[in-house]
Amino acid sequence: MNAKVRLGEFLQTRRSQLRPKDLGIPGYGERRRVPGLRREELASLAGVSVSYYTRLEQGQSLNASPQVLDAIAAALRLEETERLHLHNLARSSATGAGRGRRPAPERVTEATGQLLEALGHVPAIVTGRRSDVLAWNRLGHALFAGHLDPGAPDRPAERPNMARLVFLDAHTRDLYADWPAKARAVVGNLRLVAGRHPDDTALHTLVGELSAKSSDFASMWADHRVTACAVATYEMRHPLIGALTVTQQTLSQGQGQGQGQGQGQEQNIVIATTEADSPARTTLALLDQVTPQHDPTRPGVRAGSG
C-alpha cells in the first residue's frame, strides 16, 4: 500500500469515528448515509476548502503545510501522538517512500546490554523497531516468554517477535487478563512505526502475515489507531506464579542515538515493575526464586549480538 493510500485511509477512518453531535454540529433529524462527519463538515472545522480536503483524502494534494495539517488534526480531535503520525503520513505521501531495502540485523548496543544486565532483578527485554526481541534478562524471559528457548534472541533468524506472540501464541495470549487492551497497544505501536518508516519492507511483511493469520489483528489494524506504548498497567496470569499486576514501561532509544554499533536503530527496553509492598511484588520475587540462573556455558546478553 503506497503512502497516499495510507494517508487517505487514516483521514477517512478517523473522520468516520467522529459523531457530529459531539462536535456541536446540528443534525436536524436527518438520516446520514455514512457514520461520522462529512467531508464538508470536517473541512469547515479545519478552516480549509472542501475541494482541498477532498484532494488530500484522495492523495491528490501533496503540499499540505504543517499549519493545515495541525488544523485538520485539531478538527479530528487527534491526540499528540496521532497528530505526529498524520504529519509523518503526509510527509511520506509528498516525498514518496524510498526503495525498500533488505534490513540489516538489529544489534544490541554495549550500553543497552549493560543496562539490561543491571536490571537483574527486574523483568526486562529489548525489542527492535518491528518488536523483535533482541535480548532479555533472566526474569524478562521468565515473565514474558518462559515457554521459549532463552537463547532465541541470540539467533537473528529465530528471534521471537512480540507482536506475533501476542496475536498468534496461545501462551502469550493467556498471560493477559485483558488481552484486547494489550493487543490494541501492540497494533497502535506498529501503526506508529509504519508511519515513520513507510519503506520498511520487513515491517510490511510482518503486518501482512498478522493480517492473514489473525482476524483480530486485521480488524484492529483497519481501525487506524496509533499508540505510543510508554506506560501501561496489566493484570498478568502467569502459569507458574499465578496472577500479578505489573506496570510495563517502555524506555525508547530513538533513531540516531549513540555512536558506533546500533547507530541509526530504534530500540526499546520494556521493563515490568510492581508496587512496593504489594502482593504482586511478592509474586514477582517468587518468580525470581523459581527461575533457574543462566547456564554460564550459554551465550547471554552480548553487546552487538546478532
Rank of each mutant, 00 (worst) to 15 (best):
Q12Y: 02
T13E: 00
R15N: 00
R19S: 04
P26K: 06
P35C: 07
E41G: 15
E41W: 13
S44D: 15
L45G: 08
L45F: 07
Y52E: 05
T54F: 03
E57N: 08
G59F: 13
Q60C: 12
S61F: 03
P66F: 02
A73K: 00
R77H: 07
E82S: 15
H85P: 07
L86D: 03
H87T: 03
H87M: 04
L89C: 07
S92L: 12
G96K: 13
G96V: 04
R102T: 15
E106M: 02
T109C: 04
L115E: 03
V122K: 11
T127S: 02
G128L: 02
R129G: 01
L134I: 00
G140I: 00
L148E: 03
D149S: 13
P150W: 11
D154C: 00
R155W: 03
M162C: 09
M162R: 10
A163K: 10
A163P: 14
T172G: 08
R173E: 12
R173N: 09
D174H: 15
Y176K: 12
W179F: 01
W179A: 14
P180E: 04
L192Q: 12
A194K: 01
H197A: 12
T201K: 08
T205D: 08
E209S: 12
A212H: 09
K213S: 00
F217S: 07
D223R: 06
R225C: 13
A232H: 12
A232K: 15
H238C: 07
I241P: 09
A243L: 06
A243G: 11
L244F: 15
Q248S: 14
S252C: 11
G256H: 01
G262S: 04
Q265R: 03
Q267M: 05
I269L: 10
A272K: 13
A272W: 09
E275G: 09
T291V: 08
T291R: 15
H294D: 08
D295N: 12
P296K: 09
T297G: 10
A303H: 10
G304P: 03
